[in-house]
Amino acid sequence: MVNSFEFNGRHIEVDHQGYLKNVADWQESMAPVIAATENIELTEQHWEVIWFVRNFYLEYKTSPAIRVLVKAIGQSLGADKGNSKYLYTLFPIGPAKQATKIAGLPKPAKCL
């Protein structure tokens, strides 16, 4: 089953859970639209995490699972942000799940 949504006159393909099929389809202005389907209004703090997972994916070609996300964010943004409490405040259903979705990435395979 192929799902899709319209964005700036283009068909954007997504999987049955709403994750983009093609990483390259994503653009910054699309993030608030996907975030709205998750009932999230993006703040600067959200963006920091979204860019982080996006860059993580572009470097390692894999979406980080939550534990790895926490550790990696801790290493580059500091311990006050590299903890699951902070990340769950931003992305209540699951930071790895929701941040990767909004960043236009595949769902982390190891997501709990």
């Binding site: 470097e59 390692y60 070609k61 894999t62 980080p64 790895v68 990696a72």
Partner: peptide, 15 residues
């Protein structure tokens, strides 16, 4: 093939 080699660089993050 899919680029799964890039993930090798992330191994330390996975402990």
């Amino acid at each position: 093939a899919k680029d799964y080699l890039s993930a090798l660089k992330a191994l330390p993050l996975y402990d």
